[in-house]
Nucleic acid binder design. Structure first.
Lengths: 257, 257
DNA sequence: AATAAAGTTTCATACAATGAAACATCCTTG
DNA sequence: CAAGGATGTTTCATTGTATGAAACTTTATT
């Protein structure tokens, strides 16, 4: 991520370092000792401890049995975000309609660095267990629905994202290649929507369309997730139209007023 | 909350201030200008701006049309918290069983300062719209299920919480009084569970029991929420036993190994 | 019990963080 | 449309916060 420890002479160093600790705890996922955190963050034990103490004071970190983990205070932040998010609230009725009509799960997501994060989700009637992204989960841009956001990235950033990627495999076992990926992005840009079959999740097929603001910038993506078996060519055709329609409607309402 | 701006000579000042800004944005709920944030936090515009810039860089704040709000990065933090939370994961099957058997919504919550936050929730079959706490929402300790956590607070902290409280009303319109509240806490301590009828939400009746660790400390509460109409004396009796049982089972599994 | 490892506290020093003020930009209103 | 006011952003010298090393304490391991 960001190399905080490396760069001296930064600004707001303690803040940056603390935020870095949060992402470390988020990504590692298991409770960490001060020493571990110090190691991972390249900070001295003393500094790590002090930062963690403040985070703990605010409920963003929790210490139990000498180990630190994320604290409850992250939940109200997320709750407030979802509740107050204009895009999510605007999209919700449209998503509900689409989920109703299609019976499939509909998901709204935005880019965060080189990943995507789902900010809203509406379940369809059809069962589809744990394959669809839950709210807040970090998911890749180079697989599945993420491609629709990758297609809108500036060339330079895209390169920076792709450079470290190596030995990536689809869920169905076939090898992911840069060439095919870039070709796919071009198709997405041309057709205005993205398809993925067993890419991130085996047995799942999904479509997504970009939500584009007045300036032509892609601010989010909306996707519909189904099982591969259920996805007939006819349905694919229908969904590809509906998902683009939904994206347009949301963009209109969101940017309109 | 914390009076950061007031106290000079603090430690990790910039970090504390930044975290304070996060809670301000969380609580205010609408997009704020730098000047507003500076005013609310008692910081100079310059400082507020710098702090916000760093928060924005990490995705914890977002700037749009010159206004700041919480950023998407809070979602992955919450996602990771919920996913990795041992208590929540331990409690889940027990909660599912209880929700199944009772048909009511079951909720698991912990204390955060002078509020409670739900960390896990399982819906029952019976419809109960928006009255039950959604995950991450900040809710009071002096009304409804929160009492079960208040009952376990040290006397001193309890006083600190109650002091500023004035002119509080229940959802049914009757006046909340300190005396009745403290009496209620005693009853809760004696009986090991809490009841509330139309306290926080009109038409809702709920029961809760404390989840107590080996040292006798209350680490969380588990509650069952129903409609007041549906809650017959017989059900009340039954739930009061079941909720305490569930709390015991969770405590055993959580602290056991 | 001895030893090692990790957690916590202390302290002098450097440089990050700060607010005031200057400057730029946006919005409002006559 | 111009003038005025408010807000956003940048600059800069000063101060005291944040820092890591090392001392010290506690907890785990052999």
């Amino acid at each position: 991520m960001h190399d905080i420890a490396a760069r001296e002479h930064s600004t707001m160093r303690s803040l940056e370092r603390a935020l870095h600790l949060l992402t470390i705890m988020e990504n590692v996922g298991w409770p960490m000792t001060v020493t571990e955190i110090g190691r991972d963050s390249q900070l001295s034990k003393a500094t790590a401890l002090r930062l963690l103490s403040v985070l703990e004071k605010y409920g963003l970190a929790e210490k139990r049995q000498g180990r630190y983990r994320l604290g409850i205070a992250v939940l109200p932040l997320a709750h407030s975000y979802v509740l107050r998010n204009e895009l999510g609230q605007t999209a919700l009725p449209v998503m509900q309609e689409l989920a109703q009509a299609s019976g499939e799960t509909v998901s709204l997501f935005v880019r965060l660095g080189f990943q995507r994060v789902s900010i809203q989700r509406v379940e369809g009637d059809h069962p589809l267990q744990h394959t669809s992204p839950s709210i807040g989960q970090r998911l890749p841009l180079h697989l599945g629905l993420g491609k629709v956001l990758a297609a809108a990235m500036p060339e330079e950033e895209l390169q920076k994202m792709l450079t470290p990627l190596d030995e990536v495999y689809f869920a169905n076992g076939t090898r992911w290649t840069r060439k095919a990926f870039l070709a796919d992005l071009n198709r997405i840009r041309r057709q205005g929507y993205c398809i993925s079959r067993n890419e991130r999740v085996m047995g799942a097929t999904s479509l997504a369309a970009p939500i584009v603001d007045r300036d032509g910038a892609t601010i989010a993506g909306i996707g519909i997730v189904s099982s591969t078996e259920r996805m007939t060519p006819k349905k694919l055709e229908r969904f590809s139209i509906e998902i683009r329609g939904a994206a347009k409607v949301i963009a209109g309402r969101y940017c309109g007023d």
